[in-house]
C-alpha cells in the first residue's frame, strides 16, 4: 500500500510546506495537509509530521496553544496506536507540551535566536528514525529557534539516556540544552522530537543531504515492520 502521511498546519506554522516537499521527495506516496482545527486525521496514516514555525504566535509558551488544538487530540490517539510521529522545532515544542515527549523547551540560554548549521551526533541508530545513520556519526543539520533549550529534571534525563531515547545530541553547545540533547524519542520509539530541521537538508542545493536518511528510514522501517 502506498505510503500515506500528513503534515499538520497550525496558524503560524511556516515550515509546513518544506516538510511536505521533503516527504514527497524522499518518502513518496500521498502527503495530506491537515489544518489544526480538524478533529479527525485522514484514514490509514503511516506518518504524521508536526512542522516548525511559531504556532499561535508562541503565545503563553512555544507550542502550548497548538498542543491543545483539536487535531492534536487525534495526533495523540494516533501516536498511542503506534503511528510514526515526527515533530521538528515548533513541532518538538508541541510534542512536549502535549505530553507525548518528556521535558520542555525553554528560551535559549544565550537569549538570542540561533539560526545556523549545527553538527549533531547520532546517539542511537537503533530507532525507526535513525537506523539509516551510523552510531556516533556526525551530521550537519540547520537549527533556527529561540526556544530550543531542552530541560528535564536529572532523574528524567538519566532515564531517557539509559533507555537510549536521546536520538541526537549537539556536538557542541548551541542553546543551553541539558546534556546537549537535540532530539528525543518516546518510550515506544515511534515519536521523535528534534529542534534541528532535517527537512532543510534534503538535496544538494540545500547545502547538504544529511536529513534524507531520516525520511528514507521512516519509509524503510515501516515497510519492514
Amino acid at each position: 500500500m502506498a505510503f500515506t502521511s500528513a503534515v499538520i498546519t497550525f496558524p503560524g506554522s511556516n515550515c509546513d510546506r518544506d516538510m511536505a516537499v521533503a516527504i514527497e521527495q524522499v518518502c513518496g506516496g500521498t502527503v495530506h495537509r491537515v489544518w489544526h482545527g480538524d478533529a479527525d486525521l485522514p484514514d490509514g496514516l503511516d506518518f504524521i509530521a508536526l512542522p516548525g514555525g511559531f504556532s499561535y504566535g508562541d503565545y503563553l509558551r512555544s507550542g502550548a496553544m497548538a498542543a491543545r488544538s483539536p487535531v492534536m487530540q487525534a495526533v495523540v490517539r494516533a501516536a498511542e496506536r503506534g503511528v510514526t510521529v515526527l515533530g521538528v522545532c515548533n513541532g518538538f515544542q508541541v510534542l512536549t507540551e502535549a505530553g507525548l515527549l518528556p521535558g520542555a523547551l525553554m528560551r535559549n540560554a544565550g537569549i538570542r535566536f540561533v539560526c545556523r548549521d549545527v553538527a549533531l551526533t547520532v546517539e542511537n541508530n537503533q530507532s525507526l528514525f535513525t537506523a539509516g545513520y551510523e552510531a556516533g556519526q556526525q551530521i550537519t543539520i540547520p537549527v533556527a529557534h529561540h526556544d530550543g533549550n531542552y530541560f528535564a529534571d536529572d532523574a528524567t534525563l538519566d532515564r531517557i539516556e539509559g533507555e537510549g531515547r536521546v536520538a541526537f545530541r549537539y556536538a557542541g553547545p548551541v542553546n543551553g540544552s541539558a546534556r546537549n540533547i537535540a532530539g528525543v524519542l518516546n518510550d515506544r520509539g515511534n515519536v521523535l522530537g528534534m529542534m534541528p530541521h532535517p527537512e532543510r537538508m534534503i538535496e544538494a542545493a540545500h547545502g547538504g543531504t544529511d536529513g534524507r536518511a531520516l525520511f528514507e528510514n521512516v519509509v524503510r522501517g515501516l515497510v519492514e515492520a
Binding site: 502550548a64 518528556p102 521535558g103 529534571d153
Partner: peptide, 9 residues
C-alpha cells in the same frame, strides 16, 4: 495544570 503553567518547569 492543563494550560496556564507547564508543570515540568
Amino acid at each position: 495544570r492543563k494550560l496556564l503553567a507547564n508543570m515540568v518547569i
